[in-house]
Design a protein around this nucleic acid. Structure first.
Length: 486
RNA sequence: GGCCCCAUAGUCUAGCGGUUAGGACGUCGGCCUCUCACGCCGAAAACAUGGGUUCAAGUCCCAUUGGGGUCACCA
């Protein structure tokens, strides 16, 4: 437990694996507010130890998104700081050294099991309806032998030697003591065979080395926290204070944690549909936390001034676009006309956006007054499909199947990195072939879904200009509209 | 399924033993008004269930139910 008087140091630790997530902004907000109120430091650390999933462009997108909503950090990869580097991929030696410490202390062991063996083990356990988990096959190998084999280049991982049983407890600031029995916990992999650490090792080592006093993160980490407690003990370190915020939920029927399959999760989506950053931040501040005194609209500074963990409620809040929009309206209406003009320009009426949009319509207009009508769908968020429901179709195919097909196309581009005309077109062609539909019909379907019209500029160029967030949203809404049609 | 977390209207929430259970979004109705919107006024709408504890329970305890998270060489 953090001793009293310890300087407050908190962190946000995003993993650069995709679009900047509202959940990241949400947790960052609470870290930021708490650090500011306490006169502490806010650290941004990039957790990019997954080579397969890390994307180079994602890190910058996350920085930009956090800056866009108005959050800044005192230490991080871009601004430096006394505990640099702040990118875990650049701290490999630190983790290897610490894994070695645990190995030397007998708190961890080398495991030479192949992925193939683990997979078979898993299948067998499932067949026997046993709880899946590592069978500790390598736990009792002679450590000296393990060192020799590793030195000889045999691939291996390092696992934590978790006690066979006994309660492991930590105190969550919002929930009190949370206990799990050690027998429920696997011998966690700490160091992967590629030499990089897993989340658990890297996180604990960095939080300690970076003198993090309070770990403020999402509820999904609760059941991992005992593993972290074990690691702190194994190193002989004091653990920080843990504060697990509730998880943002989908507005859908099922209230699972917010996910892009269900609704937009990228901060950039909200930016692109014209949500003001201060409104989004304010809205996130009302998720699981209340200002008190019936206040719903408040500035970041006001939140800092009155912030208290006592005002956190633990039911997972549904991220409700209606209410966000209402709050946004409030902010929008209070802007001076000059400010409003600036916001609109920054949003879409800027040179960059026009330069990307105008090539699509230049040959389709005869007078300047036709620009706005011709490009109207490039300046809107959700579309109304009721007037074009008849066109949102493929001959001889049931609406429900058309709906599924639209979602299948979304899945196709979700699986691809980048957002280019070529990629979108390739996927559309493959999708069309798979369905056995005429491209003429299939592409018209997509066209209407994406633009709400039948006469438009070339489809894939249009999608590129609109961006992934809005395109995805429109296709999903079109699929929904089709699902409702009989 | 095991383990863990959670539980006030459709949604976000106030409530920290004694309230006509408050506010907000959304919905519906009305006022304002050249239209629409804003704004204003009003209405419907909640303490999951069952046991305790207590003079008194939305508030404390337990169980049930329901929801969620987690069980990777992902974070």
């Amino acid at each position: 437990m953090t001793p009293p008087g310890t300087p407050v140091r908190v962190r946000i630790a995003p993993s650069p694996t995709g679009d900047p997530h509202v959940g990241t902004a949400y947790i960052a907000l609470f870290n930021y507010v708490f650090s500011r109120q306490q006169g502490g430091k806010f650290v941004l650390r990039v957790e990019d130890t997954d080579q397969a999933r890390a994307r180079t462009d994602s890190e910058q997108l996350i920085f930009d998104a956090l800056h866009w909503v108005g959050l800044t950090w005192d230490e991080g990869p871009d601004v430096g700081g006394p505990h640099a580097p702040y990118r875990q991929s650049e701290r490999g030696q630190i983790y290897r050294d610490h894994a070695q410490i645990l190995l030397d202390r007998g708190e961890a062991y080398r495991c030479f099991c192949t992925e193939d063996r683990l997979a078979k083990l898993r299948i067998q356990q499932q067949a026997e309806k046993r709880t899946p988990g590592y069978d500790r096959h390598c736990r009792d190998l002679d450590p000296a032998d393990g060192e020799r084999r590793a030195a000889a280049g045999e691939p291996c991982v390092v696992r934590l030697e978790v006690p066979l049983s006994g309660p492991i407890t930590f105190r969550d600031r919002l929930r009190g003591e949370v206990t799990r029995d050690a027998k429920e916990i696997d011998d966690q992999v700490l160091l992967k065979s590629d030499g990089l650490p897993t989340y658990h090792l890297a996180n604990v080592v960095d939080d300690h080395l970076m003198a993090i006093s309070h770990v403020i993160r999402a509820e999904e980490w609760i059941s991992s926290t005992q593993k972290h407690v074990l690691l702190y003990q194994a190193f002989g370190w004091d653990a920080p204070e843990f504060i697990h915020m509730p998880l943002l939920r989908n507005a859908d029927k099922d209230k699972t944690k917010i996910s892009k399959r269900k609704q937009p999760v990228s901060v950039n989506y909200y930016r692109d549909i014209g949500i003001l950053p201060e409104a989004l931040l304010n809205f996130l501040g009302t998720m699981g936390w209340s200002f008190g005194g019936d206040r719903e609209k408040f500035t970041l500074q006001e939140m800092i001034d009155v912030f208290s963990w006592d005002r956190v409620s633990l039911g997972g809040p549904v991220f409700n676009l209606e209410k966000l929009t209402w709050l946004n309206e409030k902010y929008l209406h209070e802007l001076s006309i000059d400010e409003l003009a600036d916001r609109v320009i920054a949003w879409r009426l800027n040179r960059d956006y026009l330069r990307s949009a105008l090539p699509l319509v230049q040959k389709r207009i005869r007078k300047l007054d036709e620009v706005i009508p011709a490009t109207e769908f490039l300046f809107s968020g959700d579309l109304d499909y009721t007037p074009v429901l008849g066109e949102l179709a493929v001959p001889e195919v049931a609406p429900a199947d058309v709906s599924k097909a639209v979602l299948a196309y979304v899945e196709r581009f979700e699986a691809r990195v980048g957002w280019t005309k070529q990629m979108l077109e390739d996927e559309a062609n493959a999708w069309c072939t798979e369905l056995g539909w005429k491209t003429k019909h299939a592409f018209m379907l997509l066209r209407v879904a994406v633009t709400g019209r039948t006469a438009t500029p070339p489809l894939f160029e249009t999608m590129v200009v609109l961006g992934k967030e809005i395109t995805r949203r429109r296709l999903r809404r079109a699929a929904e509209a089709l699902g409702k049609a009989r």
